[in-house]
Measured scan of single mutants.
Amino acid sequence: MTTFKLIINGKTLKGEITIEAVDAAEAEKIFKQYANDNGIDGEWTYDDATKTFTVTE
Rank of each mutant, 00 (worst) to 15 (best):
M1D: 09
M1S: 13
M1I: 11
M1K: 05
M1H: 15
M1L: 10
M1F: 06
M1V: 11
T2V: 15
T2Q: 10
T2H: 15
T2E: 13
T2A: 13
T2G: 04
T2L: 11
T2P: 02
T3Q: 03
T3F: 15
T3G: 13
T3R: 09
T3N: 09
T3Y: 15
F4Q: 00
F4W: 06
F4M: 01
F4T: 00
F4D: 00
F4H: 05
F4Y: 11
K5S: 07
K5R: 10
K5P: 00
K5Q: 07
K5A: 03
K5I: 06
K5V: 06
K5F: 09
L6E: 00
L6C: 02
L6K: 00
L6A: 06
I7D: 05
I7E: 06
I7L: 05
I7H: 08
I7K: 14
I7N: 13
I8Y: 15
I8C: 03
I8R: 01
I8F: 15
I8G: 03
I8A: 08
I8M: 11
I8V: 13
I8S: 04
I8E: 01
N9T: 13
N9M: 13
N9H: 14
N9K: 13
N9Y: 08
N9W: 11
G10E: 01
G10N: 12
G10H: 08
G10I: 14
G10Q: 08
G10P: 07
K11R: 04
K11C: 07
K11A: 04
K11H: 02
K11P: 03
K11T: 11
K11S: 03
K11I: 04
T12H: 15
T12N: 15
T12Q: 05
T12L: 10
T12R: 02
L13S: 07
L13A: 14
L13Y: 13
L13I: 03
L13E: 05
K14G: 09
K14R: 04
K14P: 06
K14A: 05
K14M: 08
G15Y: 08
G15D: 05
G15A: 13
G15E: 06
G15N: 11
E16T: 15
E16I: 11
E16G: 04
E16S: 13
E16Y: 12
I17M: 02
I17P: 02
I17D: 02
I17N: 14
I17Y: 09
T18V: 09
T18R: 08
T18I: 07
T18N: 10
T18C: 02
T18A: 13
T18Y: 12
T18F: 06
T18W: 12
T18P: 03
T18K: 06
T18E: 15
I19L: 06
I19V: 15
I19G: 13
I19T: 10
E20W: 04
E20V: 09
E20C: 03
E20S: 03
E20R: 01
A21T: 04
A21Y: 02
A21Q: 02
A21P: 00
V22M: 08
V22G: 06
V22I: 13
V22S: 12
V22R: 04
V22W: 12
V22A: 14
V22Y: 03
V22T: 07
D23F: 09
D23Q: 06
D23K: 11
D23L: 03
D23I: 09
D23P: 01
D23H: 05
D23W: 04
A24I: 10
A24Q: 12
A24F: 13
A24D: 07
A24K: 12
A24V: 14
A24S: 12
A24E: 05
A24Y: 12
A25Y: 15
A25W: 05
A25R: 05
A25E: 07
A25D: 11
A25M: 14
E26A: 15
E26L: 05
A27Q: 00
A27R: 00
A27C: 01
A27I: 02
A27Y: 00
E28T: 12
E28G: 15
E28K: 06
E28D: 07
E28F: 14
K29I: 06
K29L: 08
K29Y: 07
K29A: 05
I30D: 05
I30K: 11
I30P: 02
I30M: 06
I30S: 08
I30H: 15
I30G: 04
I30T: 08
I30R: 09
I30V: 13
F31V: 14
F31G: 15
F31A: 10
F31I: 12
F31R: 00
F31S: 05
F31P: 00
F31Y: 09
F31H: 01
K32C: 02
K32V: 04
K32L: 14
Q33I: 14
Q33W: 05
Q33A: 12
Q33H: 12
Q33V: 13
Y34E: 03
Y34R: 10
Y34P: 00
Y34W: 07
Y34V: 08
Y34C: 01
Y34G: 01
Y34F: 06
Y34H: 11
Y34L: 04
Y34K: 13
A35W: 03
A35G: 07
A35Q: 06
A35D: 01
A35R: 07
N36C: 03
N36V: 15
N36K: 13
N36E: 09
N36R: 11
N36A: 11
D37C: 03
D37S: 15
D37N: 15
D37A: 14
D37Q: 11
D37F: 14
N38M: 07
N38V: 02
N38S: 07
N38E: 06
N38A: 10
N38L: 05
N38F: 08
N38Q: 13
N38W: 06
N38R: 15
N38H: 14
G39S: 08
G39F: 07
G39C: 02
G39Q: 15
G39M: 15
I40E: 03
I40T: 05
I40A: 07
I40L: 13
I40G: 01
I40H: 14
D41T: 12
D41P: 12
D41W: 06
D41L: 09
D41K: 05
D41F: 09
D41C: 07
G42F: 01
G42T: 02
G42K: 01
G42C: 01
G42Q: 02
E43G: 13
E43Q: 07
E43L: 15
W44P: 01
W44Y: 04
W44Q: 01
W44N: 00
W44S: 01
W44I: 15
W44D: 00
W44F: 08
T45S: 12
T45D: 04
T45E: 15
T45Q: 14
T45C: 04
Y46H: 05
Y46I: 07
Y46S: 03
Y46P: 00
Y46D: 00
Y46G: 00
Y46K: 12
Y46R: 07
Y46F: 09
Y46M: 06
D47R: 12
D47F: 05
D47H: 08
D47N: 14
D47V: 08
D47W: 09
D47S: 08
D48R: 02
D48T: 08
D48N: 06
D48L: 07
D48F: 08
A49K: 11
A49V: 09
A49F: 10
A49H: 14
A49S: 14
A49I: 09
T50I: 05
T50N: 08
T50H: 14
T50A: 15
K51W: 08
K51N: 09
K51I: 09
K51M: 07
T52Q: 11
T52S: 12
T52D: 03
F53M: 15
F53P: 00
F53L: 02
F53N: 00
F53E: 00
T54P: 00
T54G: 06
T54S: 08
T54R: 15
T54K: 07
T54I: 12
V55D: 00
V55G: 01
V55P: 00
V55E: 00
V55R: 00
V55N: 02
V55S: 04
V55M: 12
V55T: 08
V55H: 02
T56Q: 08
T56P: 01
T56R: 14
T56F: 07
T56Y: 10
T56M: 08
T56V: 14
E57F: 14
E57C: 04
E57K: 10
E57S: 06
E57H: 14
E57R: 09
